[in-house]
Design a protein around this nucleic acid. Structure first.
Length: 612
RNA sequence: GGACCUGUAGCUCAGCUGGAUAGAGCGUUGCCCUCCGAAGGCAAAGGUCACGCGUUCGAAUCGCGUCAGGUCCA
C-alpha cells in the first residue's frame, strides 16, 4: 500500500515540495521552521502534527496554529512561553502583519492584506485548476460504484452511491491520484438466471402466447421474480429478431437449451444499456465495466482461491450456527472456509458451498484481485446493506496482496425520500419504487447530485422532493447556483461597462487589488484561500460532501458581501466612473465564480450562468 | 446473540481527524429594496453535543460501557 496520510499535517510534512498552491500550506511550512528553531531538537513527528487552520473568529486573525501546545510537553516548557517565542520569530516574516499568542497557547496570525489580496490573483491564474493538488501522485486508485444488478432500471436506492462514488472519483483526481471508475456487473449469479426466465415469459407473451405469471412461475427454477413492465420492450425486440424460434410449436415454453443463452445475453445487454442511459442522465461515466462472468472465465477466481490455499488459509469445515434467531432450514454442512478471522473478521467465511460451487464471496475475491492488478488502493462505494461484507473482503485482500493493496469502503446509508412531508413508500414488489429517471425528471440532475452530497455518506439522510426544487435559501443547490449566477451577472454588466477584454481573468490579474480591504472582502479572500486545503482534506478523508459544504460557505460569504453593497456603496462591484476600483472588485468576483466552478466540477454539478 | 453505521437547537443537518464562546438553514420574533437580481441580507431567541466512566494541558471529536434508531448476519 502506498502512502496514506492519516491527516493533513502528515501529508504536508511528508514532502518538501508543496502538493498544492495553498496559502495555508505555504505558511505552515514557515510555522514549522519557526518551531524547529524555537525548540531545537524537537522530534519531527511532533512537528508534523502542527496544524494551521482558518480561524472561526476574525478577531483571532486569519490563521491559528497549535504548534506551541504540541511542543510544550516534549520540550517540557509552558505552551505560553513557546508561543511567545514563536510570535517573535513569525513577526519577522514579511507576509505577516501581526502574530500574537492567545488562549491556552494558540498563535494567531494576521496576514498582510496584500497576501490575502494575492489569493485572488492565484485563483485567476490557476483557472480551472485552482484547488488541484499533486498529493495523490503515485497512488493509483480504483473506485467501484453503482454496480447495480443488471435486472432492471436504476432506482433511487442506487442514486446516493452513484453520486457519492462519482464525486469521490473526481475529488481524488483533483487531489492528484490517477483514478479508475469501475462498475461490476453481477452477470453470473442467480439473479440473472431469474431475469432470463422473466424475460422469456415476456417473450412468450410478445409472440402472442397467453400465459399468466401464475402459470409460468412453476416452470422456473426459483419462481418468477421480475414481473416489471420494463422487460416488455426487451421481449419485443427479441421476438422481432427471433420470431417464434425460441418457443415450441404451439408457442409455449421450449427447452431452455433452445433459448436460454440467447435470451440471457439479450436481456443482459439491454438491461446494461438502460443502466448506462440512466447513468449518463446522472452525468456519470465509468471507464471500466467489469463482468463477473468474464472474471470467472479468466480463471482469476480459481487463481485467487488457489493462492489463499497455498498460504494455508483454507480448510474444510462447518460454520457455527447463527446465534439468536435460528433459520428453520439450518443444518451443519461441511464447506470450504477461509480463515478471515486471522485478519480481523469475526467469523471464518465460506468460499464454496457444500455442493462445491463458489459463493458470491469467492467470485468477489477474484474480482478484487483483478482490480488490484492495476491499483494501489481499492475503494468500494457500497450501500448500508453490504456492511457485513466489509471485514471479510478486507481480510481476503489483505491476505492476497500481503497488505500491499489498500481496501476501503465508503458506506452510503439509506436515503428516505420525502414529499409533502410524507415519506415516499417504495416497494419493488408493488411496483411503486421510484426509478432514478423519475427522480431526475422531477428535480433535475444537478439538484439530485448536489443534495445527495450535502450530507456525509455514512449518515442517513432525508431527501425532500419539495425542498430541492425550491428557489429559496433553504435549498443549498439553488443558493450556490444563485451565487454563481450573480457573479456572472455582474461580470456581464462589467463587460458592457468596461469592455469585454478588460474583464477577462487574465486582464483582471493585473488589477490593483489594494482597495479590497473591508472585513467582508477579506472574509471572502480567506475563504478562497482555504479551498485547496479543503480539497486535500476532503480527499484524504474520502468525504466529497465537504466540497459541497465549502460551496455553501463561499456562497454565503458572497451573498453577504453583495448585500453589504446596499448600505455601503464603496463595496459595490461596479463603479462606472472608477475603473480601477471596479477592476479590483471584479477580480474578486471572477475569483469567486472561478472557485465555485472548480468546486462544483468536482461534485459533477454544472454551474449556471443565470437563473430563470 | 453478534457485526457495522448513526445519536449535536422544535425540524433537517454541518462541525475542517483533540483546540478558544459548539455553527448553518427551516420554523419563531424583529429589521433592510430611490441602489449591480430582496430568488437575497442583518439581528434576536433557541444546546446537559443520548447517558456514564476513562485518556490529557484540552473531548461533540479518542477508548470502554449503557440506552435508542438504522442496516445486515451460510
Amino acid at each position: 500500500m502506498k502512502t496514506r496520510y492519516r491527516n493533513r499535517a502528515e501529508m504536508a510534512a511528508d514532502t518538501t515540495t508543496l502538493t498544492t498552491d495553498c496559502l495555508f500550506a505555504r505558511t505552515r511550512v514557515q510555522v514549522c521552521d519557526a518551531l524547529r528553531s524555537v525548540v531545537p531538537g524537537l522530534p519531527e513527528e511532533v512537528v508534523q502534527r502542527v496544524d494551521l487552520t482558518p480561524t472561526r473568529d476574525p478577531s483571532h486573525g486569519d490563521m491559528a496554529t497549535n504548534a506551541a501546545m504540541l511542543a510544550a510537553k516534549p520540550a517540557r516548557r509552558k505552551p505560553a512561553d513557546i508561543a511567545a517565542e514563536l510570535v517573535a520569530k513569525l513577526s519577522e516574516l514579511p507576509e505577516i502583519a501581526k502574530a500574537e499568542a492567545a488562549g491556552p497557547g494558540f498563535v494567531n496570525l494576521t496576514l498582510r492584506p496584500e497576501v490575502l489580496q494575492g489569493v485572488a490573483v492565484s485563483v485567476l491564474k490557476a483557472g480551472e485548476r485552482y484547488g488541484r493538488s499533486t498529493m495523490g501522485q503515485g497512488t493509483r486508485v480504483n473506485v467501484e460504484y453503482v454496480s447495480a444488478n443488471p435486472t432492471g432500471p436504476m432506482h433511487v436506492g442506487h442514486c446516493r452511491g452513484a453520486v457519492v462514488g462519482d464525486a469521490l472519483a473526481n475529488l481524488l483526481e483533483a487531489a492528484g491520484s490517477p483514478v479508475t471508475r469501475e462498475y461490476y456487473i453481477n452477470d453470473a449469479g442467480t439473479q440473472v438466471v431469474a431475469l432470463t426466465w422473466a424475460t422469456y415469459w415476456r417473450y412468450l407473451q410478445a409472440i402472442g402466447t397467453e400465459i399468466s405469471a401464475d402459470d409460468f412461475s412453476p416452470l422456473t427454477p426459483n419462481g418468477l421474480q421480475y414481473q416489471g413492465e420494463y422487460l416488455i420492450p426487451v421481449a419485443d425486440s427479441i421476438a422481432e429478431k427471433h420470431g417464434r424460434a425460441l418457443a415450441d410449436a404451439e408457442g409455449g415454453p421450449a427447452d431452455p437449451s433452445v433459448w436460454f443463452e440467447t435470451v440471457r445475453r439479450e436481456a443482459l445487454t439491454q438491461m446494461m444499456a438502460a443502466i448506462r442511459e440512466d447513468l449518463e442522465a446522472l452525468g456519470i461515466s465509468h471507464e471500466v465495466f467489469a463482468s463477473e462472468a468474464e472474471t470467472l472465465a479468466s480463471g482469476r477466481v480459481d487463481a485467487a482461491i488457489a493462492k489463499l490455499d497455498s498460504k494455508g488459509l483454507l480448510y474444510e469445515g462447518v460454520l457455527e450456527p447463527p446465534k439468536g434467531k435460528m433459520p428453520e432450514d439450518w443444518e451443519a454442512r461441511p464447506q470450504t472456509l477461509f480463515r478471515s478471522t486471522e485478519f480481523g473478521d469475526d467469523q471464518d467465511r465460506a468460499l464454496r458451498k457444500s455442493d462445491g460451487t463458489n459463493t458470491y464471496f469467492a467470485n468477489d475475491i477474484g474480482y478484487h484481485a483483478q482490480k488490484a492488478e492495476n491499483a494501489d488502493v481499492l475503494i468500494d462505494v457500497l450501500g448500508a446493506d453490504h456492511g457485513g461484507y466489509v471485514s471479510r473482503m478486507r481480510a481476503a485482500i489483505s491476505a492476497l496482496t500481503d497488505g500491499k493493496t489498500g481496501f476501503e469502503v465508503v458506506m452510503c446509508q439509506i436515503v428516505r425520500v420525502v414529499k409533502n412531508g410524507e415519506p415516499v413508500k417504495m416497494s419493488k414488489r408493488a411496483g411503486t419504487f421510484v426509478t432514478l429517471r423519475d427522480l431526475l425528471d422531477e428535480v433535475g440532475r444537478d439538484a439530485v447530485r448536489f443534495t445527495m452530497l450535502t450530507r456525509k455518506a455514512d449518515a442517513q439522510m432525508e431527501f425532500d422532493l419539495d425542498a430541492v426544487v425550491a428557489q429559496t435559501r433553504d435549498n443549498p443547490v439553488f443558493y450556490v447556483q444563485y451565487a454563481h449566477a450573480r457573479c456572472r451577472s455582474v461580470l456581464r454588466s462589467a463587460e458592457t461597462m468596461f469592455g469585454a477584454e478588460s474583464v477577462t481573468p487574465e486582464a483582471l490579474c493585473s488589477a490593483d487589488l489594494t482597495n479590497l480591504s473591508s472585513d467582508v472582502e477579506l472574509a471572502v479572500l480567506r475563504r478562497l484561500a482555504a479551498f485547496p486545503r479543503s480539497v486535500e482534506a476532503a480527499a484524504t478523508a474520502r468525504e466529497p460532501h465537504r466540497i459541497a459544504t465549502y460551496c455553501i460557505d463561499l456562497a454565503s460569504d458572497f451573498h453577504a458581501l453583495w448585500n453589504r453593497g446596499r448600505e455601503d456603496t464603496t463595496l459595490r462591484f461596479l463603479h462606472e466612473n472608477d475603473r480601477a476600483t471596479s477592476l479590483a472588485k471584479l477580480a474578486l468576483v471572477s475569483a469567486i465564480a472561478g472557485t465555485l466552478r472548480c468546486a462544483l466540477t468536482i461534485l459533477g454539478v454544472v454551474p449556471v450562468e443565470e437563473m430563470r
